[in-house]
Amino acid sequence: MAEFLMYFTNGLVIGVINAISAIGVSLIVGIMRVINFAHGELYIFAGYFSYHLSLTFGLSPILAMPLSVFFIFLIGILMERLLIRPTYGDEMYSLIITFVLSIVLQNSALLIFGPYPNKPPALISGSTQIFGLFHYGNQRLLSFGISIGILLFVFYLIKKTWFGKSVRAISQDREMASLMGIDHWRINMISFGLGAALAGSAGVIIAPIFPVTPTGSSAISLTAFVVVVLGGMGSLKGCVVGGLILGILENLGAAYVSTMYRHIFAFIILILVLVFRPWGLFGQKT
C-alpha cells in the first residue's frame, strides 16, 4: 500500500508539471493553429538558464527561476515575430519550421551547454515522511506546490482578465474578434511568448528533480502533445485532467508493468484517443 501511494504521489507531481507544459502548447494551438515542435527545447533551455544563472552567475535560485522563465518568454516572442508570423495560414510550413527549429535549438543547446545533464541547486533538501508510510523528496513536494500556484495563475489570466477574454475571442472566431477591435497580431505574439514561458516554467520547476539534457527535449514535447490531444486541443481544463491522467498512468505503469515502457503508455493513449474520441476529453467536436 505504501508503495502504491508513493507511485501515485509521484504521478500527481509529474502530472501537474505535465499540465503546465501542455497548457503552453494548447494555448498556442488554440489561438494560432500552430503546433510548436520546439516546445521541449524551450523547456530544456529554461532548465539550463536557471542552472547557469544560479551556479555560474551566483544568483539565488529564487531569482534565477523567474528570470529564466522571462528569458524564455522573450525568446518565444522573437520566435513568433521572426519565424512563425510569416507562416500563418500555411500549416505545412509552420510544421516544418517549428520542427527544424527544434533540431536547431537542440543542437545549439549541445553546443552551448554541453551534453551533460545539469541540475540547478534544489531550493530545499532532504525528504519528508508522508503519513508515516514513505519518504518523499522535499524538492518534489515544493515543486508540486509551485506548479499548482502557476496553474491557478494561468486560469485566472485566461478566465478573468482582458487578455484572457481576447484570447478566447480569437480562438473562437478570429474575424469576429478583429471586428470587436482586438489586435490579434499582438495577442498572438504575447500568447506565443506565454506558451513559451509555460514550457520554461515546467523546465525550471523540474530541473532540480530531473536534470535537463539537450537530447531529452523530444520526450518532453511529445508528452505535452499527447496531453493536449487527450484533453482536447485548445482546452485548458483538458490539459490539467490529461496531464494528471498521464502522470499517474505512467508512474503506475512503470511500477506494475515495466519501467522500461514508462513512456509508451502515453502513445497507447494517443492512439486510443484518435480511434475513439479524436476531439479529446474536453475538446469541441467539429
Partner: peptide, 12 residues
C-alpha cells in the same frame, strides 16, 4: 534504461 534520470520506481 541507460539514459534514465528518474529511478524512484526502481528504488522503491
Amino acid at each position: 534504461e541507460r539514459e534514465s534520470k528518474d529511478f524512484y520506481t526502481e528504488l522503491t
